[in-house]
Design a protein around this nucleic acid. Structure first.
Lengths: 231, 231
DNA sequence: TTTGTTCATATTGCATTCAAAATTCATTTC
DNA sequence: GAAATGAATTTTGAATGCAATATGAACAAA
C-alpha cells in the first residue's frame, strides 16, 4: 500500500492550495526514484498488473505515471507491448553528458555570484558530512549528500528552470551509476574535486567554479562509461 | 473529431514497428501545438468534458495527455479543480531565457563545426524562403520557417538531447509570441540578424555563430517581454 | 450590502469493464 | 526435429461507472 499523508504543506506561495497529492503523482515520484536508484534496471519491462498489486492501486494512475516518465525519457513505451526502462545508447549518453557539461558551467558561474552566505554555509556543512562518509567508505549516504550538494549548487543560481533541467538530465545518467561500480581511485579523485569546488565557491571564483564543476561531471561521466563498457 | 489515418508509416528504420499511434499521443501532439500556437491562452482553463466531445475521445487518453503536458510545464494541474494553461511569471520567463541563451551558444558553436553541406544548403534555402515571406509581410509562414531554421540548427549539432531540450524550452516561451504583436522594426532587425547567422554558418565561424544565436534569442526575448508588459 | 449556510450540480480522481492486440503454447505440417 | 499454424491466455488501450470533491446558486442572518 501507498503511504498517504507524507506530503507536507508548502506554504511558501501565498495563494497556493493545500497540496493534497493525488495517487498519480505519488506513484510517479515512487517510480522515478526506483528507476533512478537502479531498482528497475535498463531494458527491464514493467508489468502493469504486478505493479498495481504491489502499490494497491488501479491501472489508471499507474498508466498516467508511465506516460509522464516516458516523456521524461526514463521509460520507453512500446505500443501495445508495455513499457520498459529506457536504455541510453552510447550516443545518447554522450549527448546528455555534453549538454550537462554546459549546464554545469552555467551553474558554477552563476552559483559563485548569486549564492547567499547561508547557502554557502549549508553546502559547506554537507561537504564535510559527505567527507565523513567517504572516510568510512559509506557509499549510499555519500551519494545522497553528493546529490544534495549538486542540486544545492544549481538552486543557488536562483534559476528554477536550470534546477529542474539539471535534475532531469541528471536522473537519466545517474541511474547508470548504480550499475557502474565506483572504483576506489575514482572515488578518491571525486572527493578531491569536491574540495576544490567548495573552495572556489567560498572564494566566489565564478570562472573557476564553472570549470571545476564541468570537469567534475566529465570525469564522473567517463568513469561511468568505462565501467559500463567493461560490465 | 480526430482524423484517423493521417499518420504516415515511417519506414526509415528497418526493424521498427508500424507506428500505429495511440490516441493519447495524438491528443498530446494536438494539444501541445494548440498551446504553442496560442489557441489556448495562458490562464485558460481546459474543460475535460468539452475537449472529449470536441475530439471524440474518452477522458482517459485526454487525461494522460494532460499529465504529460503538465510535466512539460505547458499545463498546470490544480488538484480536483482541473487544468489551466501555465502562466510564466516574469522570473520564470527570464530564467528560461537565460538557460536558452546558453543552449543557443552551444548550438551555434557546434552547428558551425558539425553541419554537413546538405544541411547548410537546406538551411540556406529555408532562409531565402523565409526572407520572401518577410518581404510580403506574411507572418504565419515566416514564423514557421523561422522555427524550421532554429530547430534545424539545433539538429545540425548532431546532439539529440540538445534538440529536444531546446524544443521544449522554446515551446514554453514561443507561445507568448503569438500574444505579443511583433513590432515592424523588430521584425526588420530579426531578419538582419538571420542574414548574419546564415553567413556565419556558411563560413563555419563557430564562436561567431554561437554569439549571434545567443544575441538573437535575447533580442527576441526582450521584444516579447516588453510587448507583454505593455499589453 | 455583506457574510454565512445549505443544497443541487458539475467536475475530478480512481476503479472497473470491454474490446483489440500481442503473446504463449499446443498441434500440425514438412 | 524445425518451422508453421491457430486457438487459448495475457496484456494493453480506451470507455464507462462511481464515489469524493469543488463550484455555485438560493436563501438566511447580521
Amino acid at each position: 500500500m501507498l503511504e498517504a499523508g507524507q506530503q507536507l504543506v508548502d506554504a511558501s506561495q501565498g495563494e497556493t492550495h493545500i497540496p493534497r497529492q493525488n495517487l498519480h503523482s505519488e506513484v510517479l515520484a515512487l517510480l522515478r526514484t526506483a528507476i533512478m536508484e537502479g531498482r528497475f534496471k535498463p531494458k527491464e519491462r514493467l508489468n502493469e498488473r504486478l505493479l498495481c498489486e504491489r502499490f494497491g492501486i488501479s491501472r489508471t494512475p499507474l498508466r498516467e505515471a508511465f506516460k509522464v516518465l516516458a516523456a521524461e525519457g526514463l521509460l520507453t513505451l512500446l505500443p501495445n507491448r508495455g513499457v520498459v526502462v529506457t536504455t541510453l545508447s552510447i550516443a545518447d549518453f554522450e549527448a546528455t553528458l555534453s549538454v550537462m557539461a554546459h549546464l554545469e558551467t552555467m551553474i558554477g558561474e552563476q552559483a559563485a555570484i548569486n549564492s547567499d552566505e547561508q547557502t554557502i554555509t549549508k553546502i559547506r556543512a554537507w561537504h564535510h558530512q559527505m567527507f565523513a562518509h567517504f572516510l568510512r567508505q559509506e557509499m549510499a549516504p555519500y551519494f545522497e549528500l553528493n546529490q544534495k550538494i549538486h542540486i544545492g549548487l544549481a538552486a543557488a543560481t536562483g534559476n528554477a528552470v536550470l534546477v529542474s533541467l539539471y535534475a532531469s538530465l541528471n536522473a537519466k545518467i545517474l541511474r547508470y551509476r548504480y550499475q557502474a561500480n565506483l572504483q576506489p581511485e575514482r572515488w578518491q579523485a571525486a572527493v578531491e574535486e569536491h574540495e576544490d569546488i567548495l573552495s572556489a565557491l567560498i572564494l566566489r571564483d565564478a570562472p573557476r567554479l564553472g570549470a571545476l564543476l564541468r570537469q567534475h561531471l566529465l570525469n564522473k561521466g567517463a568513469a561511468i562509461k568505462s565501467s559500463l563498457e567493461e560490465g
